[in-house]
Amino acid sequence: MHEFHLPEMTCGHCASKVSIALKRLDAACDIQLDLPQRKVHVRSDEDRATLIDALSEAGYPPA
């Protein structure tokens, strides 16, 4: 499982965009969002760099 801190994820709309971006990359991925801590945990067959690229392209680059 990969954990990312997303400082730009500040609301439910942001969390939705993060989920959509990750699901587009890997429809079978498991996502756990922690909005108050601005963290996302992702279980995916994709490698970490690919996940980071998808998050960054969606406007939520990991810190």
Rank of each mutant, 00 (worst) to 15 (best):
I31R: 06
A27R: 12
F4I: 04
R24A: 14
L51I: 12
H13G: 11
I31F: 01
I52E: 15
S44T: 04
D26M: 10
E46P: 01
K39Q: 13
P62I: 07
R38Q: 15
S56V: 03
H2S: 03
R24F: 06
P7I: 09
A54I: 10
H5L: 06
H41L: 06
I31K: 04
D26I: 02
R48G: 00
S19F: 07
K39N: 06
K17D: 05
A27P: 12
K17I: 08
I31E: 05
T50E: 07
P62V: 05
T10R: 12
M9V: 07
A58P: 05
Q32F: 02
D34P: 01
E57L: 13
S19M: 15
Q32D: 11
I20F: 05
H5W: 10
A54T: 08
F4L: 07
E57F: 01
E46T: 02
R24V: 04
G59E: 02
L22N: 03
D47A: 08
L33K: 04
C29K: 09
H5P: 01
A27C: 03
L6Q: 04
A28P: 01
K39S: 10
V40S: 13
E57T: 08
G59C: 09
K23S: 14
A28S: 14
P61V: 08
P36K: 02
P36Y: 05
K23W: 13
R48A: 00
C11R: 11
L22A: 05
A58T: 14
A49L: 00
H13C: 08
E46W: 01
R43P: 01
I52V: 15
P36R: 07
H5R: 14
Q37M: 10
P61R: 09
R38V: 07
L33C: 05
C11E: 08
E46G: 02
P36D: 01
H2F: 15
P62M: 09
P7C: 12
R48D: 00
R43W: 08
A28V: 07
R43S: 14
S19N: 15
P7W: 03
D30P: 00
S19Q: 15
S44I: 01
D30A: 11
Q37Y: 03
Y60P: 07
C29H: 05
D47Y: 01
L25K: 11
R38K: 15
P62G: 02
A28Y: 02
A21S: 12
L35D: 02
K23E: 15
D53L: 09
D30W: 03
K23R: 15
P36M: 04
R43V: 09
V40D: 11
M9P: 00
C11H: 08
H5C: 11
L6P: 03
A27F: 02
A27Q: 11
L22F: 09
V18D: 13
L6W: 07
I20T: 15
L55Y: 09
H41V: 06
L51H: 05
C14A: 13
S56L: 06
K23T: 15
I52K: 13
C11A: 13
E46Y: 03
I31A: 12
S44D: 01
C11Q: 12
V42F: 13
A54W: 05
G12A: 10
G12P: 06
R43H: 08
D45S: 13
I31H: 06
S56D: 14
R43I: 03
F4Q: 02
I52T: 12
E46H: 10
M1D: 03
D45N: 10
T10I: 08
A58G: 11
